[in-house]
Design a protein around this nucleic acid. Structure first.
Lengths: 214, 214
DNA sequence: CATTGTGAACGGATTCACAGCC
DNA sequence: GGCTGTGAATCCGTTCACAATG
């Protein structure tokens, strides 16, 4: 029932719970305990209960959580109860991968258009517009888009970010391997595949005694 | 000088330092202070000094860190002083994006082959072999590959993971949006684009009072 | 004297333990 | 009886403040 703003660590787990609930509901399961959610997610049951308790008391003591009810609550908490409009900027392989990916899965979002400096006509898929950059301001305005996925080369990233912010984008999922700077109030989430790969390699050698031993 | 194993939070930042050092060296800069690294990375200078101190005393008081020396140390710590061989399993758009991405950038890794249940011949690029799944054990064995990037559909993920582990893979960068289970000793890093997008959406609504208010 | 390296203080997140409730 | 909700205890990571030193 606490009403202070949720910690980052909690927010990161909410979409995980949502996905599990979607799966449970698909299997016609009506009620789930924190213990079962723990088995599915790998988080501890206490942690799950505490996470949910940041936003309210959604469970029934002795029984568990109603899957439909909890999903609805989570959708509302995350902000997915209304479909979120998104644009993809940079329509290379990664941009394509992300649009396909999302077209397939129900992830409560709608990619309204993709942009590229050099859009290839025939690569548009199932109703997705692939447009030249010049149309970006128009689309953002007309569709009232607030969220953008950025998959342009590192060199172009900052320039494009400035354009996005200028036209009203407030949240950016950045795949360009570079630090971008934004004004106060704009939220950026960086996903850097190279860094993640290198981190993985660290752990792949962790055991070996030679790892860092002279 | 502490020799206990480094916390995850520290390990995640090491590749960031490495990238900055690569950039500095490209600009012929010989010495860098923790303050400058702080400006470049957004982490605090104290944190950077502490992170590096987990592995040794690499700096010179009053001066800073020698960029070449520190890079060499970081390469060795992360395990990138030798090129790491990697396979990509699942050669859809995402698999392609990752191979291109990496072919271009020097990230100290070498993708030795990609695998797919239905490899399309003409899509092989600059020396990258795109092979049928049946050749997977052979390649892993002959090339002594320990690290795999997994970009197959969620339904196939667990099955493919079992195959990988069975043949000697010890580290997996998983892009399939599902929890995979592995035996003790195998390290998995999950990168789930849908979850990251949904987390972003949470923050895009965070300010709005209506966010979670009945 | 500028900058590193580090013990101590702090703060945030997780785990523990159990009270509250169906 | 079983499972949620939560204060207290603990753990972990970050920040602070300063001693060490080229």
């Amino acid at each position: 029932m606490s009403r202070r703003k949720a910690p980052k660590s909690v927010v990161k787990r909410l979409p995980v719970y949502l996905r599990i609930l979607d799966n449970l509901i698909r299997r016609d399961i009506e009620v789930v305990s924190s213990r079962v959610l723990s088995d599915e997610t790998g988080f501890t049951a206490e942690q799950i209960r505490k996470d949910l308790a940041y936003f309210g008391a959604f469970g029934t003591r002795g029984t568990g959580y109603n899957t439909h009810y909890l999903r609805d609550k989570l959708l509302r908490i995350i902000g997915l109860h209304r479909v979120t409009k998104i644009i993809v900027v940079g329509y290379g392989h990664l941009g394509k991968a992300l649009t396909r990916y999302n077209a397939v899965k129900n992830s409560y979002v709608d990619i309204v258009a993709a942009f590229d400096i050099n859009p290839v006509e025939e690569e548009a898929i199932e109703g997705l517009r692939v447009l030249e950059m010049q149309y970006l301001p128009e689309v953002i305005r007309e569709e009232e888009v607030k969220v953008a996925i950025l998959t342009v080369p590192a060199e172009a990233a900052q320039e494009v970010v400035d354009l996005l912010v200028e036209n009203g984008i407030t949240s950016i999922l950045n795949f360009a391997p570079t630090n971008i700077s934004v004004p106060e109030g704009v939220y950026v989430h960086n996903t850097d595949l190279t860094l993640e790969l290198q981190t993985l390699i660290y752990y792949s050698f962790e055991d070996e005694a030679l790892h860092y031993g002279e």
